[in-house]
Design a protein around this nucleic acid. Sequence first.
DNA 1: GCAATTAGTGTAAAAAATGCACTAAGCCCC
DNA 2: GGGGCTTAGTGCATTTTTTACACTAATTGC
Lengths: 249, 249
Amino acid sequence: MATNFDNYFKSAFTVDNVIFGFDEGDLKVLLIKRGEEPHIGEWALPGYFVRTDEDLDTAAQRVLSELTGLTNVYLEQVHTFGSVNRHDFGRVITISYFSLIKIANYTIQPSSIALQAQWHTVNDLQHLAFDHDAILEACLQRLKWLVKTRPVGFELLPPKFTLTELQHLYEAILRRDLDKRNFRKKILSMNLLVDCAETQEGVAHRPAKLYKFDRKRYNKLVAQGFNFELKESRLAHKKDLPEASMSHL
Amino acid sequence: MATNFDNYFKSAFTVDNVIFGFDEGDLKVLLIKRGEEPHIGEWALPGYFVRTDEDLDTAAQRVLSELTGLTNVYLEQVHTFGSVNRHDFGRVITISYFSLIKIANYTIQPSSIALQAQWHTVNDLQHLAFDHDAILEACLQRLKWLVKTRPVGFELLPPKFTLTELQHLYEAILRRDLDKRNFRKKILSMNLLVDCAETQEGVAHRPAKLYKFDRKRYNKLVAQGFNFELKESRLAHKKDLPEASMSHL
DNA sequence: GCAATTAGTGTAAAAAATGCACTAAGCCCC
DNA sequence: GGGGCTTAGTGCATTTTTTACACTAATTGC
């Protein structure tokens, strides 16, 4: 593709994708073990160059589906990182995205990049390659905000889930404990959950009811300008964070 | 600067800056009348190519100061727009920023770009060049969110201001009327305003007290994790938006 | 001094958030 | 088959926050 712009102004562009999943009560992120320099052997976010004839969102989707086989998942641009020296081999500007997927739907792809992919629990990560620590942090902040603003939880959960699973998901993202009764009251008052009239099986205790999200109803409410604001403090059990204790402002 | 990356992956990139100001009760944005193709004669956001040895934030600051002579103002990255066909002459990816300035401090600069600059009231804008309508809209949304989250109003107001001026600023950004008593109660309860012990002069009615923001106190509170959340509905006078009427969720 | 204009102030009612503890249902093991 | 273990599920009273609302105060200009 020919352009009229002098090469002086050009740069390489990549997308980096923070792929979140939820499993065993933990928020997870899918990382790649780098097989080449620079930062060989280190864990990094999956990403790749943006082709010159490819839109940014398309590139992010491509990275995601090459890695996970999934399309049609929640995907959102977060921030662009472009420090002159962030890449060892020259200037590379990266546009970061995050996506939310159901780990159960994830199937390892035969691509060379995917073979080195592994889920990591967000809470016990080592240092990542390049400036990927900062990218991940930005995406975590965005996810935290998102979850308080829109009920996106169902993007990370299997189609049928229990209220306790949903609560654990919120707790993992918000990094705080929530009160069970208040959480249920709030979530059910949104009228977005449908009782499947089924219960859990194979658990060594009282089985919980299964719910699913009514995505139609959700879309309708969003279209009407419905706001799902869940203030952090609204679901709080204890004032265990300094900001919470001043939330009356 | 040499890189190891094939030219195939490279693209031109710019920063575009939505510079907000506030004057005569209206939210304003500083636009440039384009003097060259493409889109000659149309109004556009000020922006320019990012130098290959320049960080993105630095480039945005440079655009701002070349245009307004101002440094040290509120500046924040918003979103990156990179549709393949957004620029007529080739692929150009643009990273958008917005900044908040005090119009009174603005002095027209002798640069050629600044000579074509003009303030426009956000509420009655025509179509802008390129995809700048979308960029402006994204920045407006971000500003709306910001103003509900942090008391950034003082970035747009003169050092001394009345509570009514501050309220008008909020109303312009949130695009809704607010109740005077509730607004004052909420703002003053934040303990961020200092009474200057002065009053307005030269007005044909009861003069209002002048206040200023205590930036030191603000910084201290932010550092402590203080959250300035101002739900839209919290300052509402009337439920004039559909979302407000369902804000109990 | 009076008309016009904007500043400034309090309270009561409704809604939302919070804190808290017991019973229910199923599994497992003996 | 009974008792222990584990997690599910549920209500209410208190506190905090939000909301709605109308009059008096101070100044200018005529």
